[in-house]
Every structure is written in structure tokens, then in C-alpha cells.
Design a protein around this nucleic acid. Sequence first.
DNA 1: CGTTCATCCTGAGAGC
DNA 2: TGCTCTCAGGATGAAC
Length: 300
Amino acid sequence: MPELPEVEVVRRGLHDHVVGRRIETADFLGARVARRHLPGPVDLADRLRGNVVHEAQRRGKYLWLVLEAPDGHRQGLIIHLGMSGQLLVEAADARRETHLHAIFDFADGGPQLRFVDQRTFGGMALADLVPDVCRAPRTSGVPAAIAHIAPDPLEPAFDKGAVIARLKMRHTAVKRSLLDQTLLSGIGNIYADEALWRAETHGEREAASLSKPALGRLIEHARDVMFEALGQGGTSFDSLYVNVNGASGFFERSLDAYGREGRPCRRCGTLIRREAFMNRSSFFCPRCQPRPRGTVIVLR
DNA sequence: CGTTCATCCTGAGAGC
DNA sequence: TGCTCTCAGGATGAAC
């Protein structure tokens, strides 16, 4: 999935359906889902038992559940959806999905929380919570393992000026920088292309070569498009990208660039082009977003 | 240090 | 029908 809007849709589902409940048992099917939890899946299941889910948090594309043990000790259960992860709230007798990797049962006997992931790039890990210099002191902190993830444009701690300053030092493609989660987080391939289309900027332009106001506008466009997508429940090209109830979002119909190869630019009518970029694809309008001189064109 | 690249997986769809 | 190939909303560690 899941870029920031899709992950936020999932976070809200967790807030509504999981926060406040006590974990009775957690089962991890196979080792891959807990591969980032170094002691392994059995240890993770042991540590989760009896904890109450206190909060559902998110930064960028990372989710974490703030868990409170009976002795009051709090930790964070990091959840990343990877390319195809789903968190589903379902009755215990619901059919088991083909790529089911984790099942949480709760002491209230209500619906289960399941983690389903076709490509298994997603996963979970338990981490200590550390103070976050970017957050107000009263908040519960961030998991240590994702302390390197930068604030996303939708959180109060986001510092646009600081991000612009760092972008001015990047001698690499501006799209590559937008995708760098340690610079600003939450943006993936869809919303990078959408922000660049709105800013009428080609993704191969060197970040440092853009003016500070231009970089500021690009960041604002990224924030706007992700906020608008969130209002539509996110972007769902297929059934892999769903909320905790299995429902898709509707932002695909509002996309201006991503996935629109050969269709007219909604601004100027020129046909949207698709080119290879970082082993994936970029979609852009060749007229509104002129390619910087001297870069090689590779069709995909 | 900053930047780039290969790699981890499964399934859908295209082309033969 | 069935095979091979390419591609997909991501992140990481190793190598330059």
C-alpha cells in the first residue's frame, strides 16, 4: 500500500476497534512477519500477552500500538504494511486468509485483529519507546527502532523550513529525495508523482537546483494531495489496499499522473508519459513537467 | 559522510 | 492451457 493516507486509514480503524482492549493471545504464523523482532515470533507472542492497547500511532508509513503491561510499563508494537500488508478486524470464525501471518485474540472475546500480507515485506516488532525531540514532551514517544524516520507533512512536528534546507543540500533527483523517509516521511511512488505533477516539476530535477520557494510549494503539494486522498479513504487499485473492514478507498479517480500513461494531462492535454525510475515507474506530463537537460530517457 | 543498487516475496496480466 | 516474463502503493544493508 500503502503510503501515508492508506496507513492513516488503517490507524483510525485500529483506534476505533482495537484501542482499549487487552490482548489475550497473539499467534504468529511463520517466522517472516516477526523477522525484525530479533528474539523471534515466540518471544514476541509471549511479550504481547496481557497487554492493553493504549494508543494507535503513526508516523509516515509506520504504525505502532502503544501497549501497557499490567505493571504499567509501556512499549511500542511497530507494524509496517510493506507493499501488501493488511490489518483486518474479523470474527474469530471468519475464513482464514491465504496469506494470514498473525492473529490477535482479545480478552473481551470480540473480533480478532489479523495481519494478512501477500508479499511478506511487512512485519511487526516490539520496541522501547524513546522521547521524540519532534514531539511535545507529554506524548508517549516513538519506538526506538523507527527513531530515524522523519516527521511526515501531516503531523504538527513537521518543520517545512528544515526539510527545505536539507533538500537544498541534496545533489540527487528531487523525486528520490521525496521518497527518502529520513528526510520527510509518508510519501511513496504514487504521491511523489502526484506532488511533482501539481508542482509542474520533473522528478529527475536535482533537488538542490530548485529554489527554496519551489521546494516549499512541492512539499505543500505533497501534503495537500495526501490530505485529500485521506478524505477519500486512500488510493486502492485493487483489493490489496483496504481498511480494517476490508473496504477500498476512492482516490484513484482523482489521480492526475500516477497510472495514467497515454491519457491526456488534465492541465494541458498532452499525453502522460511513463518512464523507468529507481527500478520502478514515474508518470508525468512531458509538457508541464519538462525533463532537465542532459538526462537519459528510459522507457518502461 | 551521501548516494546507489540488489534483494526480500507472491500473484496478476501480457505475450507467445 | 500453460509457460515465461514483467511489474506492483517499500525498506534495508552493503558497496561505491
